[in-house]
Nucleic acid binder design. Structure first.
Length: 455
RNA sequence: GCGUCAUUGGUGAAGUGGUUAACACGCUAGUUUGUGGCACUAGUAUGCGUGAGUUCGAUUCUCACAUGGCGCCCCA
């Protein structure tokens, strides 16, 4: 048996419906914020990530999914979206467009060569937003509120935005030096990993899992104290704009990004629901004003974020959010003989073209098992086609919930189903607590109740 | 890259160094004459991740590999 590759998943069935629903919400909210969809290639030149990310960590050497193609080109499967979008922006000279900044969103698979574990696969899906060509803190604030809008629209409630600033390069370099001086004299008290980090990536010591109780952690210098005036003012503006947008956030000095191209605003959104387990962070992002230059492009400020769709699915699961996924079909045709089979085939098509979701039997099973199948498909109506009825130009339609059966003319089938399904939809609505019991009035309960949609 | 646990029909799983691999769900057929979902009856793995080894004999023990779960490194 050929198996799927390590760290990949097949998405199908009910889970696939969930993913499609998330996609549709992402599309809808992004369009409202006027972010344009961008689709870039799944594979790129290895250097795009090598140069974009730098080799300060072993990300690129160890975790990029790369290989040589038949022409000897070094190819990398994209590990993230930001560098790809910036490359596309530069290569297509979008900085020449009249309308700036350019606002993009993407949604696609990313690849990292890692050992799979909880919340981490080799192929995974991220959606993200990027604003290129604006250095104004209004864009930092907008992308964060955009993210919150999407998550709220999906039904997530236990969200926490954590915000920090790294300052500009000057502030950042200064902070790094101070931090190293803070830890260096006592580095013997720390774990082996931290002894490595102090040379390779000292900021990462701050979120070490082993040493987080060490007293030097709490007394560690904070980025905020080492900002120059320009960086400080900018950070204050971001917070001011977030307040205008009504976004709840918490300034958290331990938020750090691993990569050099980040500066100024960085943020994460986590789901605080206790069912979430270890991987609570469902979104991460920040400002990356240096990236375009590192890619040899004209200097272009940018800010954006990416969210792991798999973790969003986990969060929805953890919070017990029920998505409004329509399952079930409108009609299932049952048949026994060849003549009825042809009619099933024909009327299924007719009804589908009229907008109904319809299915019928394909494996020539007994009526008993056809009924079972109809139930499993959650068919709202079933019809056992009968040659005699059909000769009389009639059809029997059974409501699969109430079991009531009616004989109607074949000409009326579309009209009949339409009417029945509409009244069924109304019945599905709940009565709310407003006390009006579904009467015609402008209901303020805020739910899809029996009365809310009648004014 | 490192550590650790796991892998048995369509599914959930029990189990043993030795003739027929439990139980349940599902599925198929019948009781039921063209209107089911209940009930009952019967059927449903020549096979226990792959390969090699130990053994008279391996699904069971050993090793390697693959995949999965969890954790570490790292996390764009």
């Amino acid at each position: 048996m050929i198996q799927k590759q390590k760290g990949t998943i097949d998405i199908y069935g009910d889970i696939a419906k969930k993913w499609k629903y998330i996609d549709s919400v992402v599309d809808m909210v992004m369009e409202k914020y006027n972010y344009g969809y961008i689709r870039t290639p799944i594979f790129e030149d290895f250097s795009l990530f090598h140069r974009g990310i730098g080799d300060s960590t072993d990300i690129v050497s160890k975790e990029t999914y790369d290989f040589l193609d038949k022409g000897g080109r070094r190819i990398a499967l994209r590990p993230e979206g930001t560098a790809c979008v910036v490359r596309a922006y530069l290569e297509n000279k979008m900085y020449g467009d009249a309308v700036q900044p350019k606002k993009f969103y993407y949604n696609g698979t990313m690849y990292r060569y890692e050992r799979p574990q909880s919340g981490r696969d080799r192929e995974f899906t991220q959606f993200g937003a990027e604003v290129l060509g604006s250095d104004d803190p209004i864009s930092d604030a907008e992308v964060i509120s955009l993210a919150i809008s999407i998550f709220k629209m999906l039904g997530l409630k236990d969200l926490k935005v954590r915000l920090n600033t790294l300052g500009d390069k000057e502030s950042r370099d200064k902070y790094r030096e101070v931090l190293v001086n803070h830890f260096k004299p006592h580095i013997d008290e720390f774990c082996d990993d931290c002894k490595e980090r102090i040379n390779k990536n000292p900021l990462r010591i701050l979120d070490c899992k082993v040493d987080n109780e060490n007293k030097l952690m709490k007394s560690a210098p904070k980025t905020i104290d080492y900002l120059n005036d320009e960086s400080r003012e900018r950070f204050e503006k971001v917070q001011e704009y977030l307040d205008v947008l009504g976004v709840d956030y918490e300034v958290d000095p331990t938020i750090v990004r691993g990569l050099d191209y980040y500066n100024h605003t960085v943020f994460e959104i986590e789901d605080t629901n206790p069912n979430m387990g270890l991987n609570r962070v469902i979104l991460g992002g920040g400002r990356y004003n240096g990236l375009a230059e590192q890619l040899d492009g004209i200097p272009t400020p940018g800010v954006g974020w990416a969210s792991g769709a798999g973790r969003v699915v986990d969060a929805l699961e953890a919070e017990g959010v029920e998505l409004p996924i329509d399952d079930g079909i409108d009609m299932f045709f049952l048949y026994v003989n060849e003549d009825e089979k042809k009619n099933a085939l024909y009327y299924a098509k007719e009804l589908r073209e009229a907008g109904f979701s319809v299915d019928t039997e394909f494996n020539g099973k007994s009526l008993k098992s056809q009924f079972k199948k109809a139930d499993r498909l959650n068919a709202r109506f079933v019809s056992v086609l009968n040659s005699e009825d059909l000769n009389n130009h009639e059809i029997k339609i059974k409501n699969n919930k109430t079991k009531e059966e009616e004989i109607i003319s074949l000409d009326a089938i579309i009209y009949y189903l339409d009417e029945q399904l509409n009244s069924m939809e109304d019945e599905d609505l709940d009565e709310c607590d407003c006390g009006h019991h579904g009467e015609d009035h402008e209901c303020k309960c805020g739910k899809d109740c029996k009365c809310s949609h009648k004014e």
